[in-house]
Each structure stands twice: as C-alpha cells, then as structure tokens.
C-alpha cells in the first residue's frame, strides 16, 4: 500500500529548543492516523512541517508521492487542513470565507458554489452561510474551519484537534463525517486529546512525547501490548494488599491495573472497566501534569 505521508527522522529546532527530536511515521493511503501526545509534545509542529508551513531542520518528508522540495501547487491542492487555532476571516461571512479560500486553490466560481452548499450541509451550518464569522460561537467556527478544509475536495485531510470546543452532538457529527471521508477513500491525519475519539476513528495511533515517537500501533494492539486488561477505579488511599498491582494516582481516586479480577475482593466500592487507550496514554507519558519544558 502507498503512503500518503511519510516522515523519516524529522527534526525541528526553534533556536536552541528541539521541539521535534526525531519523528518517523507513515500515513497509509485511505487510512486514519491519529497523532497523540501531551501538550507541547510536538504534534502541531509535525503537522505544520507536513503542510510546508514550517521547514524541518533535518529529515526526509514525503507527501502524496512528492519529496518536500518537489511540493508544488498540484500536490498542495490535494491537501486540506483544519488548523489548531482557527484562522477564518472574522470580518467576512461564512460564504465569503469559503469562496475566498476556494479561490486560493484556483477553483472555478461554480465549483466553489456547489462545494460551499455541500460542505455547509456536511457540518450542519447551511443556515448560517450569510453570518459573519465574528457572530458565530467558538464551536461553530471550528465546524466552519472543518468545512473550509473540504472546499477543495482534498485527498488528504489533516485535522489538528478538530473537536476541541465542540458539544457532544457536534463531536459525534464530526466523527461520522470523518468516517464518511474515509469511506470516500480519503486519507485522514488528526491530533486529539480525546482518547475515545482516537480509539473510535483511528486505524493507527502514533504516540509522541517530548518530540519523539514513543509508541505506534492500532488502538487494540497498543492496549494489548502496554496495559493490563482490567482496570479498577477506587477511592484513595490504595487499599492494603493491592501494592503488587500497578496503579496510577489520578487525583481524586486511584486506578488499579490487573490481568485478572483478583483485586475485586479487596476493594469496597469500585468501578471496573476494560483497559482503554487512555490507560496506555497515562502509562507511557507519565501521570504528572506537564507544566513546561
């Protein structure tokens, strides 16, 4: 299978600070890959390098079959980006925003018109086409950013935290849209801080921390490989006799990881659930909150 995106030992320095130390991964055509990691891990920086918005300090980058230095109008017109921070034109209407953006791609007026109707329906905001961006709520703007990325009907869609700030309905809607895009054969690369989202949507997860890839695999593989299948959430402190089990202090309560149901007998009130991607994230990136570097 061909790769839509391939990063090979990508490295990025801002001055003396190494934001991305060494990142290598591929996004196979037609698949959905999620880039996960704590704040400041280097996700946005990696996506920007893929988009050509930042120059890597070293390493090889291949996008839709072209090397980084061969990326031309034709290649870029096949990529759509939802940036982490919205950069819509606040003084223009929704429709004008989409029109202006489509014209950057050199698209014909009629085509942009058709696409505008289609993508606004896609994000359930068709009734707001005449509204100014500055009059929309934060979540609506996010959805317009998503719509804008699709105006050019790209083959590769890159989404940087697309669902941050969305209400539950809108998140479900966006997930459905991402699945629809995949069904149309498009390639998706996204970042998110919602582990359930990543688990639902991704064929492949790339976990990064401190500018390095620390794990790769399908959600199932990662869970199986890195954490025990049973998780018990109980009140602190950790009850006596359970010290031999791996546990994570998550503030209010404690998570106890086990290969079987044996901790059950020693616990009073508890909540039992199967291990999920969040447990992998907690284990591999460490519990302590990342303040700064």
């Amino acid at each position: 299978m061909n790769n839509a995106v391939k990063l090979d030992k990508i490295h990025k320095k801002f001055g003396e600070f190494e934001a991305v130390k060494e990142v290598s991964f591929s996004v196979p055509e037609g698949k959905c890959v999620s880039l996960l990691g704590p704040n400041g891990a280097g996700k946005t920086t990696s996506l920007k390098m893929i988009m050509g918005l930042l120059k890597p300090s070293s390493g090889e980058l291949e996008i839709l079959g072209a090397q980084a230095n061969e990326i031309n109008h034709h290649i870029k017109s096949r990529i759509g980006l939802v940036p982490q921070d919205d950069n819509l034109d606040p003084d223009l209407t929704v429709e004008e925003n989409l029109y202006v953006f489509g014209s950057y791609y050199g698209l014909k007026k009629e085509f942009i018109k058709e696409q505008t109707t289609k993508v606004l329906e896609f994000v359930s905001l068709a009734d707001r086409r005449k509204a100014k961006i500055s009059e929309l709520s934060g979540g609506m703007r996010r959805r317009i950013s998503f719509a804008r990325a699709l105006v050019s009907d790209p083959d590769l869609v890159i989404l940087d935290e697309p669902t941050t700030g969305l209400d539950p309905q809108a998140r479900h809607m966006l997930w459905q849209k991402v699945r629809n895009l995949k069904a149309e054969g498009k390639t998706i690369l996204l970042t998110t801080h919602y582990m359930d989202e990543a688990e639902r949507l991704s064929d492949l997860i790339v976990l990064v921390d401190h500018g390095q890839v620390i794990a790769k695999g399908s959600p199932r593989e990662l869970i199986k490989e890195h954490v025990e299948p049973h998780v018990f959430e109980a009140e602190k402190p950790l009850p006596q006799g359970l010290e031999k089990f791996r546990n994570e202090d998550i503030g209010e309560s404690v998570l106890i990881y086990s290969t079987d149901l044996s901790p059950e007998k020693k616990l009073g009130t508890f909540h039992h659930r199967p291990a999920n991607l969040e447990d992998v994230f907690l284990k591999l990136t460490g519990r302590s909150l990342r303040e700064s570097n």
């Binding site: 988009m51 050509g52 918005l53 109008h73 034709h74 870029k76 017109s77 990529i79 980006l81 940036p83 921070d85 950069n87 819509l88 034109d89 606040p90 953006f101 950057y104 791609y105 050199g106 050019s152």
Partner: peptide
C-alpha cells in the same frame, strides 16, 4: 493576530 497568511499558506499559495 488573524493568521491570515497561515491560512493562505495551507492552500497552494
């Protein structure tokens, strides 16, 4: 502030 140029650079411009 508005990152208009970033939006443009994400297109083929």
């Amino acid at each position: 502030f508005q990152k208009t140029y970033d939006a443009m650079l994400a297109s083929p411009l």
